[in-house]
Amino acid sequence: MARKLANGDNDTRLRGKRWWAQVGWKHIFALLMIVYCLFPILYVISASVNPGGTLTGSNRLFQAFTGQHYADLFASQFPRWLLNSFYVSGVTAVGTVLMAAAAAYAFSRFRFKGRRGGLTALLIVQMFPQMLAFIAIFLLALALGEIFPGLGIGSHLQLIAIYLGGALGANTFLMYGFFNTIPMDIDEAAKIDGASHAQIFWGIIMRLVTPILAVVGLLSFVSSYGDFILARIILPRTEDYTLAVGLYVWGSDERNAPWGLFAAGAVVAAIPIVLLFMYLQKYIVSGLTAGGVKG
């Protein structure tokens, strides 16, 4: 009997070792990664409520509290920069979704001359780094502003147009794979009932591809919301800055920068992105993975 109990305890220990070897270490690794990711966030929040207004004085987290930095934040040009970012990113996200969805629908459903060549061209264009195009974009914006002043340097519409052009290729490929997972039988049944291509696209297909629309819109919004280089090139006036450019100007002078104000602005700027991810999280996994099933 004692021998059976000893064998039973030994089996339990083996199961425990096996669990730690296969599963337990993953929990430890996940906890370490959570701590690693949360510490910078806590540090920035602590700096935003630190009355000293310096980063070196924030080594001890939450040693003092003040809301003055947030009050000063909304008394500055920050609200205007925030609205500019919402406008540019929102219009870019909507435009990217519509353009990429239309292009992906055409490549997925229609068979026309140059279809494969067009897909290949989109893929090749995306291989070149955007850094190579900054000078060309700036010169093009200058030339375009002489013909259409509303699309020149300092125009939010010009910045939106640049974002739309840069995001079209990658997002078209992402949607193209998702569109291919929708059976063609749905289109054929709708055509038999007398539906046009526009009715099929807007009334049927667009409702079935909601996950990928949410993912593309989210990625487009986040990338344009946090972009700095293009926005710095196109928007020279302070009142037209987006958040990334405005916060950079505040932190450009390392010795005299208002770091408390900068940290408060970073916290407020991150809130919309976090809320957007939480609202669209149910679409993110399905939207990113379903496109690889067929295509």
Rank of each mutant, 00 (worst) to 15 (best):
M1G: 13
K4M: 05
K4I: 10
L5E: 11
N7T: 10
N7L: 12
D11I: 13
L14M: 12
L14K: 15
R18K: 14
W20L: 14
Q22N: 13
W25E: 07
W25M: 09
M33F: 11
L38C: 11
F39P: 02
F39Y: 14
P40V: 06
S46F: 02
S48L: 04
P51T: 05
P51R: 05
G52A: 14
G53E: 00
L55Q: 06
G57Y: 08
S58R: 04
S58T: 14
S58H: 06
N59G: 14
N59W: 09
R60H: 12
R60M: 13
F62W: 08
Q63R: 10
Q63T: 12
T66Q: 07
G67P: 07
G67C: 11
Q68F: 11
H69Y: 10
H69F: 13
Y70S: 09
Y70D: 08
A71N: 14
P79M: 06
Y87H: 10
V88S: 06
G90C: 02
V94L: 06
T96Q: 05
T96V: 07
T96D: 04
M99Q: 08
A100N: 01
A103L: 09
A104Q: 00
R109H: 07
F112S: 09
F112D: 05
F112T: 03
K113H: 04
R115M: 04
G117E: 03
A121W: 09
I124L: 10
M127F: 08
M127V: 08
F128A: 09
P129D: 08
Q130E: 09
L132D: 01
A133D: 03
L140S: 11
L140V: 08
L142T: 07
A143T: 07
A143Y: 04
A143G: 07
I147R: 14
L151H: 11
I153M: 12
L159G: 10
L164A: 02
G165P: 05
G166H: 02
L168P: 00
L168D: 03
G169Q: 08
N171T: 05
F173R: 03
F173N: 04
F179A: 08
I182R: 02
A189G: 13
A190F: 01
G194E: 13
H197W: 11
R207E: 08
T210E: 04
T210A: 11
V215N: 00
V222E: 04
S224A: 11
I229N: 07
I229A: 11
P236H: 04
R237G: 05
T238F: 07
G246C: 09
D253H: 08
R255Q: 15
W259Y: 15
G260F: 02
G260N: 01
G265M: 00
A269S: 07
M278F: 10
M278Y: 10
L280Y: 01
V285S: 12
G287W: 00
G287S: 02
A290W: 01
A290K: 05
K294V: 05
